[in-house]
Nucleic acid binder design. Structure first.
Lengths: 129, 129
DNA sequence: TGAAGTACGCACCTTGAGGTAACTATGAAA
DNA sequence: TTTCATAGTTACCTCAAGGTGCGTACTTCA
């Protein structure tokens, strides 16, 4: 008995440790990647801008994560070659489609945020008892 | 607001380093959490079963991740108290709703998998040149 | 004459995530 | 009688993720 037929099982199996989709999952399943995707989709494009928007990210992780997103074809980097430097990051069509697929997740967080916090408190209470 | 108001920005702001939604994002943005959610939704419920399904996970991470999911109200743990031990993990309604919100993401991975791999190869080629 | 902004690269170092192995108790099977 | 499966817990140890700080080349503002 299965509560709900999982529609998302197919040829690509992230459960297989050797399937390359694991790499994708690792990329997605990264706090900074998620946040950067979010912020870039919101229309912020420059290094400093992104750093200011994403609270707590270091310059190192910013560059590193942007490179990873670029390497996976999700973000396009445009260097204007001027001095002082001017570089812009934009979502590729692939990145846009991913951002759309993430929308339900962010919506879920907004919608169920309180429920999770409540569940967390309840659990903590149970443990303490 | 901003230029291209994305639908998923509201009171809950994961960009704020102090917003508790960061914790949720950290929980979700975890390879094992994602995979476990996936596998449990597929109808696998017991410790050993999960461990066998999710390639590469250690017993430690399995337990640890299941506890985290439980602590956040996404998974319910039922201990039958028998010996030898029999424990079952099931998605709570909250967990089911999250799994649904993740469906587009997994679908995206399946759909765009080849595109990402291609982009990755192209990028590697560009760098090597 | 500085100081600050811009987009990094690089070296150093710490911390913690996560792997491994050993141990728990018990019943069933070989 | 020994081994296995069950579902863990705990201690130990390593490796790499990621933070900090400095350097760079140039321009504009104070």
């Amino acid at each position: 008995m299965k509560e709900k037929a999982p529609d998302w099982i197919g040829k690509v199996d992230p459960c297989d440790a050797n399937c390359p989709s694991r790499d994708i999952l690792d990329l997605i399943g990264d706090r900074w990647s998620l946040l950067l995707l979010l912020v870039i989709a919101q229309g912020h494009h420059r290094n400093g801008e992104l750093k200011r928007r994403v609270g707590g990210i270091s310059q190192k992780m910013l560059t590193q994560t942007l490179r990873a997103l670029e390497a996976n074809g999700l973000v396009e980097r445009r260097d204007f070659g001027t001095v002082p430097p001017h570089v812009e990051y934009r979502l590729t069509p692939l990145g846009v489609s991913l951002a759309h697929s993430l929308t339900p997740l962010f919506e879920w967080i907004e919608r169920e945020f309180d429920a999770v916090v409540a569940a967390r408190a309840a659990f903590a209470g149970r443990e303490a008892a």
